[in-house]
Every structure is written in structure tokens, then in C-alpha cells.
Computed example of a mutant assay.
Amino acid sequence: MTPARRLPLAAAIAVAFLLAGCATPAARAAPPVTFIDVVERDWHTDVCIRTVDADAQLLRVTVGYEGSNYLCFGFGDRHYLMSGERGPMTLLSALLPGEGVLLLTILRDTPAAAFGKDNVVRLDVDAAGIQRLRAFLNRSVQTNASGAPVSLGDGPYTGGLYFGATARYAGFYTCNTWTADALREAGIPILGPVLFAEGIMRQIRDVTETAP
């Protein structure tokens, strides 16, 4: 698993300068056809979809890992996650705009079994929502001149793979901001801006508690 690290004090200070704003959540009137899982890993969040809900374009990131049941996507700072450096300067540099990375976790078991059921929230998604989420995930994967996903090698644990991300990481666009964008595409009502995992998890737990 990715080592858990709390954001430095400088990140908390930076939040104080964030301009207030809210995103209008998409209404979900259609019946659900599938579900997604949101995983909390201390300060970080992942979005997991069933492999059967991925399209051919998205499945290109799973070559060599056939037989999976879930694909979990997380966004982060490329230098921080891939360098292995965890000093204060590396943490502070993550507040500045820099290249992003996607960490794909390929699972045969459920996200709840892999990460602990208390760390996972399952959300129903309708047909339009899963289609928009697929499109968002495909847009998030950086591709080369021939259109192939930009692979950056193995992740920090078995079943983990790094890919280049089209989004850039910064103090005001974190892994959790990216997760919030993904959930909005899926039709989940997430108000923003969101920087921390708690802001994601609190809102989606409210969604599951108020669902009919």
C-alpha cells in the first residue's frame, strides 16, 4: 500500500487562501445500473470501478493483468509518489504545480477486502454516470504520440501500476480534488472545492445515508 503521510502545515496554511466556490451536483433521476467504490487511505482517496464497466480504451492500462475484477484509480504528485523522497522539501514542492501521476491498483478481490470495509463507501451509479466516469478516466490517462497510455512502471505494491496523468498536481488540486471531479462526472453530488479526504468521505457517506 502507498505509505500514509499527513499533509504538511504549509498545505493547511495554503488552504486559507483558497477562494470559496461550489460545484453544482448533477441530478440522478435514472435508476442505477452499477456501482463504484470510493476508498479512503488516510489523506488519500481512490475511485474504483468494476472491470466489466471499463471500455476497451480504458482496459489498455490493464494489459498483462487479465482476470481482474476491480480497477482503482488515484491521482497524485508524480515526483512525490515516484521518487520515494519524503523530506520536508519534497512535501513543500508538492504544493507547487507539477506533473501528475495516476496510480492504478488492479484487484481480483473487492476494494473492501483489499483496503478494509470501514475505508470503503459504495455508491450506485446510473448508465449516464458510468459513461461519463469512463470518459473522465480515459481523459485522465496521459497518452504518447501513437495514442498509447504513458506507462511509468510498477507501483509501490503488487497490482499497482503508475501512468502519466493529464492533470497537474498542486496545492489547490490534490488527489482528493481529482476524486471529487471524478465523482461529479459519475453524478454523485459533491460540493467543492475539496482538498482533503475527509471532505470527500463525509459527503459521500451523507449521500448513502439519505439515499432512498
Rank of each mutant, 00 (worst) to 15 (best):
A12L: 06
G21K: 09
T24D: 14
A29Q: 15
A29G: 13
A30H: 06
P32A: 13
V39A: 02
D42E: 14
H44G: 05
H44N: 08
I49T: 12
R50N: 14
T51G: 07
A56C: 11
D77H: 01
D77L: 09
H79W: 13
H79C: 11
L81D: 00
M82D: 06
E85H: 15
G87F: 11
G87P: 06
P88N: 04
E99I: 00
G100A: 08
I106E: 14
L107R: 02
R108E: 12
A113M: 03
G116D: 06
V120P: 03
V120A: 03
V121G: 01
L123D: 05
V125D: 02
A128C: 08
G129V: 14
G129Q: 09
I130E: 04
L133C: 11
R139V: 09
V141A: 07
Q142W: 12
T143W: 07
P149K: 02
P156I: 04
G160A: 13
L161E: 00
G164K: 04
A165E: 00
G171P: 00
F172D: 06
Y173G: 04
T177A: 11
L183V: 02
A186F: 00
I188G: 04
P189Y: 08
I190V: 02
G199D: 04
G199Y: 07
I200H: 03
Q203V: 00
I204E: 13
V207H: 10
P212G: 09
